[in-house]
């Protein structure tokens, strides 16, 4: 089955892509670039670099822009999925939704209306097992946004590895945060994945942070041999 993967550039969408590749054929990535940093549906920091991830994975990218207004952005998502169906013949859509009923419901409805399959391979996944798989299976992930206490500026640009997961577990036990950032506490960017032919090297980046709210903007990044 040919599938299109909704890709924000973060760990969940690219890990979902990897799961999909192991069972079916991934025909393209689909990215919605939102002008609204508060978008309910679409993660925003560095989303334009999804094009570099698509190139690294040797997959075509369908990129659609949205003003990011609530509900209107869903029409833009539907437009993007229609384009993916026309250009790449997709029969289904894959998302990285873990717990968000809001996101999952809306993508399910669009797929249902278009007669497409919908897959959420991380749906209600055990968070610790998921993070362990992510690292164990060769993903390189950095934190590109923090949006909640107790995440301070040290986390911006930090790699998710065994040491940071250990710290995240301690924080999750003490504060009401999810280990995976599914509650919107952090956003991530994938610089390498098992299906990337090249990895992404960040050349320039800048961090802006205030009161447990910060972003790590990647100004320049290139593909380099693995």
């Amino acid at each position: 089955m040919k599938l299109g993967v909704l890709c924000s550039g973060g760990k969940d969408s690219l890990f979902a892509c990897w799961r999909a590749m192991q069972k079916e054929e991934v025909a393209c990535l689909i990215t919605i670039v939102s002008a609204n940093p508060e978008s309910y549906m679409f993660h925003t920091p560095n989303v334009r670099l999804a094009a570099l991830q698509a190139e690294a994975a040797d997959l075509p990218l369908v990129e659609v822009e949205t003003a990011g207004e609530k509900e209107v952005e869903l029409e833009d998502l539907e437009r993007a999925i229609r384009i993916a169906r026309e250009r790449h013949g997709i029969e289904g859509v894959v998302t990285g939704a873990i717990l968000s009923v809001y996101q999952a419901t809306r993508v399910q409805r669009i797929c249902h209306d278009l007669g497409l399959w919908c897959f959420n391979p991380l749906w209600h996944a055990d968070q610790e097992e998921y993070i362990r798989s992510l690292i164990g299976e060769g993903f390189e992930v950095i934190v590109v946004g923090v949006y909640s206490a107790p995440f301070d500026e040290r986390w911006l640009g930090r790699r998710i590895d065994a040491a940071s997961v250990k710290e995240l577990k301690k924080m999750a036990a003490k504060y009401r945060i999810t280990l995976t950032g599914e509650g919107g506490e952090i956003e991530t960017f994938v610089t390498d994945a098992p299906f990337f032919r090249k990895r992404i090297e960040v050349r320039e980046a800048s961090a802006a942070y205030k009161n447990y709210n910060g972003t790590y903007r990647i100004g320049s990044a290139v593909l380099v041999p693995k």
Partner: peptide, 16 residues
């Protein structure tokens, strides 16, 4: 068997 949907509809029940 062992479909891509298994993660979504079977694994969560196994976990519960």
């Amino acid at each position: 068997e062992d479909s891509l949907s298994r993660y979504e509809f079977v694994s969560p029940i196994e976990e519960i």
